[in-house]
Design a protein around this nucleic acid. Structure first.
Lengths: 174, 174
DNA sequence: TGTTGATCTAGACCCAACTCTAGGACTTAG
DNA sequence: CTAAGTCCTAGAGTTGGGTCTAGATCAACA
């Protein structure tokens, strides 16, 4: 019933290092108990929770946000609205990610299509070639990877996302 | 027609720092030219390419992979199959991401639903509460965030993804 | 008895993708 | 003439999410 850190590592897919790290970061619902000799003992429950953590992480939830959630749980009843809030925020986030990826995907499918067509017709040389900019201007199907996605797809093209990474301080002042 | 680095920053959403960084990293199709005084001059074309880069980045393509692509383009015609390969790889990657996110989303929607129901019925105290593990065992709708997604959704539950981050060296030897 | 093998702690290190700083130059407006 | 604004380079610093190392303990096995 009780599990060693090694077993949990195997079954969760996280490394033992990561498990100790998660503990330091306060990501477990209840404190990890120890054997007399100081070794950690885990439970099936912990495995379940870790599986969820991994899922949340893989959908882009930060450890900070996961910690917030588990802290609310630890506090006990009374903050269910806050928990819900948090879940909803992440849900929206995931939905936005999917929309954005769908948009990218449409563009990529279109490009792959163009490449396939050109290669099939033996016209590969009409694809993007930076050294012959004039040829490129004239041709229609030139590969700049930047044509607008085909019209059937533009319906859900993602909003412009701005910088992928925001600076640490107050905010960049350009 | 020509653009300063500041203009490009504004219009691309990248910082001037990032633009210089991208250049150092070899992410531009053709070398960025300079004015007599050493200042960079960019082109509309560069903006287009940067827009694509941002899209690719936001869909998880690494700068390394983007560089590989643009290097192929720089080499000129003859490697179109390789370019296609690269595009297809990323396309698969994006598709996998979407499937995974959809799976997470199903679970989250289910959880949000449970929270909403409970709150509406004033039964919030039956949700996950670590200090009363017995209550929790007995109740059905307990919030462990870990119930399997509702059956209508399990169809496309994502494969287990393993660690989110693989170590730098050959591979972990546990 | 010695040698694995698993674990422990504290803390150093890693990586991607930037951001930020320092010190200097050039341009334009007032 | 000076002040502001944009730009330059080289290189240091940051963040998140871990990984990895060193040195020590402990249990079991041959």
């Amino acid at each position: 019933m009780d599990l060693s850190i090694g077993e949990v590592a195997q079954r969760s897919g996280l490394s033992v290092h990561a498990l100790r790290f998660y503990e330091r970061e306060g990501l477990f619902a209840n404190p990890v108990r120890r054997l007399a000799n100081g070794r950690r003992i885990y439970h099936e429950d912990d495995l379940e929770w870790l599986a969820i953590c991994t899922k949340l992480r893989s959908s882009g939830m930060s450890l900070t946000m996961i910690r917030q959630y588990i802290e609310l749980v630890r506090q006990g009843t009374g903050n269910e609205h806050e928990r819900l809030e948090l879940l909803r925020r992440h849900q929206n986030h995931v939905e936005a990610q999917i929309r954005e990826l769908q948009g990218t995907l449409d563009v990529m499918r279109h490009k792959v299509q163009i490449y396939e067509d050109h290669l099939a017709r033996g016209e590969a040389d009409r694809l993007w070639n930076p050294s012959h900019p004039d040829t490129e201007q004239g041709s229609e199907d030139v590969d700049r990877l930047c044509e607008v996605a085909p019209s059937r797809a533009t319906s859900h093209s993602p909003q412009i996302t701005g910088p992928l990474h925001v600076p640490a301080g107050e905010r960049r002042r350009r």
